[in-house]
Design a protein around this nucleic acid. Structure first.
Length: 284
DNA sequence: GTCCAGGATCGGG
DNA sequence: CCCGATCATGGA
């Protein structure tokens, strides 16, 4: 276990923000995730203190970067001016950070995501992991942690682990018509046509082109992968929710160029605000 | 049963 | 270049 104090960090909101599909609240003060081939539980201790179910070394080498804890979100939050809607959204989403997910997992997850709800995406990604991912080891979960939601978890499968999947396998996990897209992505990386290294070293325009060129990957998935896996925080993914926000509050289009380096962070505030706050109001 | 979901592709105009 | 039809399935 490792305990630390963190500003602008709310794991519960991050879990509900829909940018990753394998992070879930357990209760009001505990969140768990399977990412980077590991299980992690975070306990909120109050007063901006958090306990991580890992060693300090693992926190420093993996989770600090994964949760983007080196970026000054307070300063970014303070750049919002003259935009009542965005201000309200950022206030509501105070504590959300942009995750730096594994690129391969993000590419496949967001290919799966198209034309589906978040719970449905979660189901499909879990089935895929259970089908061919490696079982992860569980840390000790004594105080201040709680029992995990499930007893056994599987890491998101590697390119190699997915290279043996048949069309029937993909149908069985519920990939639907996206099966061939997944197969094509596996082939791109298994053949070396695409590599993690060429994506890491690419500038925004080059990375955009590499992703857009993949079969079944359009501009929306491309922007999500750039934002949620490559920390390209200037990208502004537009899905049906964001389009609805732009129609209602921005006359049809949000000027993302107002935030050249942080538009993606603003987008996440807007997305979370619309999905969580507004839908809640409509139900009551 | 009905409707919609963190869209992309394809063919036709 | 732009537009509409279509794609397979889970969850509400």
């Amino acid at each position: 276990m490792f305990t630390t104090k963190l500003n602008f960090f709310d794991p519960y909101k991050i879990a509900l923000s829909g940018q990753a599909f394998r992070i879930h609240p357990i209760d009001d003060s505990h969140v768990e995730t399977v990412a980077m081939g590991r299980y992690l539980q975070i306990a909120s201790l109050g007063n901006n203190e958090f306990a991580f179910s890992c060693s300090e070394d693992e926190f420093e080498s993996i989770w600090k970067d994964y949760f983007d804890l080196n970026r000054d979100y307070e300063a970014i939050y303070n750049t919002i001016e003259d935009d009542a809607y965005l201000k309200a959204a950022a206030d509501y989403g105070y504590g959300i950070r942009i995750l730096k997910q594994d690129p391969w997992e993000a590419i496949i997850s967001y290919i799966i995501s198209q034309r589906r709800s978040i719970p449905s995406i979660t189901t499909c990604v879990d089935r895929l992991s259970e089908l061919c991912g490696t079982q992860v080891s569980m840390p000790a979960l004594g105080e201040p942690f709680v029992r995990s939601l499930k007893d056994v978890y599987y890491a998101f499968p590697s390119v190699e682990q997915m290279s043996g999947l048949s069309p029937e396998d993909l149908a069985n996990i519920g990939a639907g018509y996206r099966g061939p897209y997944i197969t094509s992505a596996v082939n791109d990386f298994a053949s070396g046509k695409l590599t993690r290294e060429m994506m890491d070293s690419a500038d925004d325009d080059t990375l955009l082109a590499l992703l857009l060129n993949m079969f079944g990957v359009g501009i929306k998935v491309t922007n999500c992968v750039m934002l949620f896996a490559f920390a390209r925080t200037g990208r502004f993914p537009i899905d049906v929710w964001i389009q609805r926000i732009m129609d209602r509050y921005y006359g049809g289009a949000f000027d993302a160029s107002r935030y050249p380096d942080t538009a993606g962070i603003m987008q996440q505030f807007m997305f979370y605000y619309e999905r969580c706050e507004k839908s809640h109001l409509l139900e009551t």
